[in-house]
Design a protein around this nucleic acid. Sequence first.
RNA 1: CGGGGUGUAGCGCAGCCUGGUUAGCGCGCAUCGUUCGGGACGAUGAAGUCGGCAGUUCGAAUCUGCUCACCCCGACCA
Length: 490
Amino acid sequence: MAEKITPRADNFSEWYQDVVLQAKLADYSPVKGCMVIRPNGYALWENIQKELDQRIKTTGAKNAYFPLLIPESFLKKEAQHVEGFAPQCAVVTYAGGKELEEKYVVRPTSETIINSMFAKWVQSYRDLPLLINQWCNVMRWEMKTKLFLRTTEFLWQEGHTCHTSLEEAENKTRQMLEVYKNFAEEILAMPVWMGLKSESEKFAGALRTYSIESMMQDKKALQAGTSHNLASNFAKVFDTMFLDQDGKQKHVYQTSWGVSTRLIGGLIMTHSDDKGFVAPPRLAETHVVIVPILAQAQMKDKILEKATEISKTILESNEIKSLPYNIKINIDADETKQPGWKFHEYELLGVPIRLELGPKDLEKNQVVLARRDLDKKEFIPIDILPQTIANHLVSMQKDLFEKAKNFRDQNTFQTYSYTEFKQTIETKGGFCLTAWCKDPVCENKIKEETKATIRVLPLDSMFQEIPEKEKCMVCQTKKPAIRVLVARSY
RNA sequence: CGGGGUGUAGCGCAGCCUGGUUAGCGCGCAUCGUUCGGGACGAUGAAGUCGGCAGUUCGAAUCUGCUCACCCCGACCA
């Protein structure tokens, strides 16, 4: 039996850890900073992979695989890149019984090793665009780690593309950001802000970094995915060049983009409650659990038979088959556990729909249905069960998104002065939309004084002039200001 | 690296201040019986290098020194 989960309000960090550990999504490993992803958690990752991979492929990208180890010299080629990543890298210096002549870095990201190959693969403008994606693990030696959100080793997807023009690269960068946004909102039911990162927050080696930012239940922001326009920064140091139509050799323009197992952390922090994890139907491993009430010995076989029959009917129904994903039903006939125990257990694990089937239901040709995100039970006649379940799965997916979106919107504020901003961040938390003059001095002041950072320049308003009278909330000078989203973050 | 804290059964902890039989409790685990529509109950049982090393003492989980590990807060975080 699991310990009771810490209520969210008391200690969000402890609550989050309880949900992760008790729902058996992940565990601490013997290697500090690395986590073990348990089958429950890995099933989520497999569904993320499946759904996202499909979407990535429709953009024309193809999957490939590059080595785990990167020659140290590769990393050093791009000045900003090495400066940003060197302090976080694990390095292999000894192998085969001797010190290595050239050290190898365990990849923190693969721009360099992939460019070393792109340089060979790209010859002509006819080879472009080159669109490659890789599902793999990476390692970044962070000082402080947290299950799923920041671990030393994590699983991710990284896309790398080459284009003939900066404009085309910019379009690809934005296209992939859209792919991530739609994926996060449709599959994870996690509303996000899209936007541009400030200069100080951008990827080491990029021209521009875009990200999607979502709000957790403690009102802190989580960067859930990034998309970078690399311009020719890596192409120049790896000589990734093509012969253009005009007969001239030119450097390619590149992008890279990624999301990681951090999404699972975001998912947990967005939807879970004090009963445990809540799996959005699109991502759930098991969608329906049937708990048969087997107390009466003479009824046992009949109930189990009926449970199997119901399960089959549901799976074969047109209503269920017409859903855009496959449904899995689990009949828990374990007689060593009591029904009440099972109810709690499946709530902890986040299974979207639970059906109870007992002697009374058999008599009335019905089942008891409980939806994970609602606090009630209904009696459903068996003949309308498939339709009811299909409806619930669809509306639960929608409701989870709406609930998260309402929460986010209710905790997003417009602030016009620095005093107002500080007060809002301190007392309410959440996101603040405000004006900034683009001066790093003002950006730094916000960070140092409030621990909040400029998350993004929201995409919708990114190129919009903001009213003449509204000045940078920090310096209040006449410098032209832009709209920014500011929040404390993970 | 700085500040604080914790190491006792698989998990959570008490005992330590004030040294003294065979180191306890709850959960979990095993067996049997009664239970089973919201985390059942009874009986029996298995399970411990008290983080490690050294010291003080007739005697150390308990006192002293050193050391190791982990957790929290800060520094880092494309």
